[in-house]
Design a protein around this nucleic acid. Structure first.
Lengths: 200, 200
DNA sequence: ACTTAAATTGAGGCAGCCTCAATTTGCTAG
DNA sequence: CTAGCAAATTGAGGCTGCCTCAATTTAAGT
């Protein structure tokens, strides 16, 4: 984003090396990856890291939001391209959880483990807003039970994030979450195509 | 349990002080409570703690299993005293989750964060075995869907543990878990009393 | 080349985990 | 009652990890 206003080339290069090392570490190990290791991978001392980014949150914010926003965009794009409101929400939730299983950094972000990372929180909040509208549409279309609020859906996703970051992880959690989501639809099997309803 | 075979009174007393400080800390803050703080609270240096208990897991094992076993016994006793198989399982799950919300140490135990604490793992395993028989009975009684296996119920409890230990915690998770469990019963509302079933 | 502002870093403080040699202390046999 | 021994305690220290800052190095512009 900020193409680095600093005058000195070495500083710009070091910042760049740090960003790329950080990105790799954060994506691989989550947002708690040791900063000392990142600095080492960038061929620099930690002090330099702190000079450039202030603290862990600063570094996270400089590097992670963009990538996660891209991943989330893929999810929302695919979800929004579905025919029915139910499919849109269903796809969204499913892909979100798939993504959480692959991206520890996203789980850490959704769990708000680093609340000072403002840009990252924004990305999450924007995503939550999308989830809320998808839920709203699903409610309107009658395919999602009113008893399942938008906050419930967000909590479900949050829960997947928490599960995916628990140590050691228990593979069974996914079935439980799927069951919770499955029980939230009003029509037993297929989405109510527009209003062809034998709904209710 | 082991009333301490050591000859020297001071050693016995220190061990006792450590146990009680440890218990307090573990119950209050979970099994990750800093050992240095425990030693300090016991009026002793960490070295002494390590002399007596070897490592964190040793201390956990010396102190936590008994208490958690008691708590779990209350839960299973109450659960088993219910009339129907469905109520027994339902009560068990509900009380377990209540307990997890109150006892971070239990969540840490179920999450297997300290696998070397053998006695603790045993307590958990015994509890899991009880859960399995309750699920089995519920299946036999026809009140629990076959699609909800014992491992699914254990995963649901594990999930509650993970959620309750995530930082910061999101209060909404409980509704999601309740929904998952609620959807696992075959009869929509009340337990099928023995076989008076309009089940299926 | 020299100056100077900027960037880097080494050293260090803090909290945790854990180890171990040296010291202290309780117990007991004489 | 005391000396001597085994047992227990501990201080010091090593390790990782977070973060700070004064002193030094170095790039860039005149």
């Amino acid at each position: 984003m900020t193409p680095d206003r600093s005058r000195r080339r070495d500083a710009r290069e070091n910042a760049e090396k740090l960003r790329s090392a950080a990105l790799e570490a954060f994506l691989a190990d989550g947002l708690g990856a040791p900063l000392e290791a990142i600095a080492r991978a960038a061929g620099v001392k930690v002090g330099t890291l702190y000079n450039h980014f202030g603290n862990r949150e600063g570094l996270i914010d400089a590097v992670v939001p963009e990538v996660l926003a891209r991943r989330l965009l893929e999810v929302t794009d695919t979800a929004r391209s579905q025919e029915t409101a139910r499919d849109r929400l269903d796809t969204f939730v499913r892909l979100m959880i798939d993504l959480l299983e692959r991206e520890p950094a996203l789980s850490d972000a959704l769990l708000r483990r680093y609340p000072e990372a403002g840009a990252l929180s924004d990305v999450c909040e924007r995503n939550a807003a999308i989830a809320r509208t998808l839920v709203h549409d699903a409610h309107r279309s009658g395919s999602l039970a009113e008893s399942c609020s938008a906050e419930d859906v967000l909590a479900l996703i949050w829960l997947a994030a928490a599960a995916s970051r628990a140590t050691p992880t228990n593979p069974g959690w996914r079935r439980v979450i799927d069951r919770a989501m499955a029980s939230a639809w009003t029509a037993p099997d297929e989405p109510a195509r527009s209003a062809t309803g034998r709904a209710r």
